[in-house]
């Protein structure tokens, strides 16, 4: 038991470290001249500088060191919560993050909760609706929701709910009303993804022989569904919780940009536009941490919910990625 928990935690830490390293490698090794890139980001013309100035700037950003030294410098900083200094805004990245992460967490968590509720409800209705046309309609709905680009959903919402109906403010970070449309925009995608996985899982569960056994006992429809189908169908869907939460985080990039909200997502968009490498690295690290943490929690909870999986062996790693694939990125 303890061994299982410690093993999972160690695994999560290793994955996180590897993800950080990979992102570092992409950001620091791919561009032809990091110096030029970073100077451009800082809004300085390299030609206008003297050799000493260049050297001074290089020293300031640590670029005169070897790539390993830089890597070590950054990594040890991250462990201490120090993500370096933003190239464009000249303030510590951790300050930027801490100012803005509250907004994004509020948005992501609300969206995750809404999608869990809406996705499960949709899947449940789509599976158990008695009237056939309704069932077909509900089963098709998630594919529709996953097909619309998020920026389109967001713009449509602004046009319709803000400009036509005047219900909610089109942009801004102030108050509860400004949160509703961004949350709904994200939820359209994430609840569709969840519903697709759940509907498939329900379908498979209902064709199992033990459902026939339960029905043969004389149980009512709802008792069969609630006592026998629900738990068995929800278990595999639990494994994509990490994907769902990760999706709400990445969705904040487009959503916050369209709705002009000052969160980490918009920070990321601006940082990429300005090629502000330390900020991008920090945002990716934070998102990966959230994803890995959620997956860790699921891994630790899973054996408690599924008696077939013991704490000594862990759950099978066959996450239903293929189904989710249709809407990620």
């Amino acid at each position: 038991m303890t061994r299982y928990v410690l093993g999972r935690i160690a695994q999560a830490v290793i994955v996180l470290w590897a993800a950080y390293t990979l992102t570092f490698a992409i950001l620091f090794l791919l561009p032809s001249d990091p110096m030029e890139l970073q100077l451009a980001a800082a809004g300085v013309q390299p030609d206008s500088l003297s050799a000493e100035q260049v050297a001074a700037i290089k020293h300031q950003f640590g670029l005169d060191q070897s790539i390993w030294a830089q890597y070590w410098h950054h990594l040890s900083g991250v462990v201490r919560g120090d993500f370096g200094t933003s190239l464009t805004q000249q303030v510590p990245v951790s300050d930027l993050l801490s100012q803005r992460i509250g907004q994004t967490l509020l948005l992501s968590v609300s969206a995750a909760v809404v999608s869990l509720v809406a996705g499960s409800a949709l899947a449940y209705l789509a599976t158990f609706a008695r009237w056939n046309p309704l069932r077909v309609l509900l089963t098709r709905l998630p594919a529709l929701g996953a097909s619309f680009p998020q920026f389109f959903v967001a713009l449509f919402a602004i046009q319709f709910f803000s400009f036509q109906l005047g219900w909610f403010p089109a942009t801004g970070t102030q108050g509860f009303a400004s949160l509703i449309m961004p949350v709904l925009t994200i939820s359209v995608l994430t609840s569709s993804v969840l519903a697709q996985v759940l509907i498939k899982s329900f379908d498979e569960t209902l064709s199992q022989a033990y459902i026939t056994t339960a029905r043969a006992k004389g149980l009512s429809r709802s008792a069969v569904h609630l006592r026998h189908a629900l738990r068995n169908a929800a278990l595999p869907a639990l494994t994509i919780l990490g994907v769902i939460v990760g999706l709400t985080v990445t969705s904040s990039i487009v959503t916050e940009t369209v709705f002009t909200r000052d969160g980490v997502g918009k920070l990321a968009q601006e940082a990429v536009l300005a090629q502000d490498v330390p900020v991008v690295l920090a945002v990716v690290t934070v998102a990966a941490t959230i994803f890995v943490l959620v997956n860790l929690v699921v891994d630790l909870l899973y054996p408690l919910l599924d008696p077939r999986i013991s704490h000594t062996r862990g759950r099978p790693s066959g996450r239903p990625v293929a189904v989710v694939e249709g809407a990620t990125l």
Binding site: A19, L22, I253, V272, V280, V284
Partner: peptide, 19 residues
């Protein structure tokens, strides 16, 4: 490890690096 970095963010890192 690739999956641990949400897809869009992985793409953004590459765009940052490549221009």
């Amino acid at each position: 490890v690739l999956l641990a970095i949400p897809g869009l963010l992985l793409a953004l890192s590459i765009v940052t690096a490549l221009g």
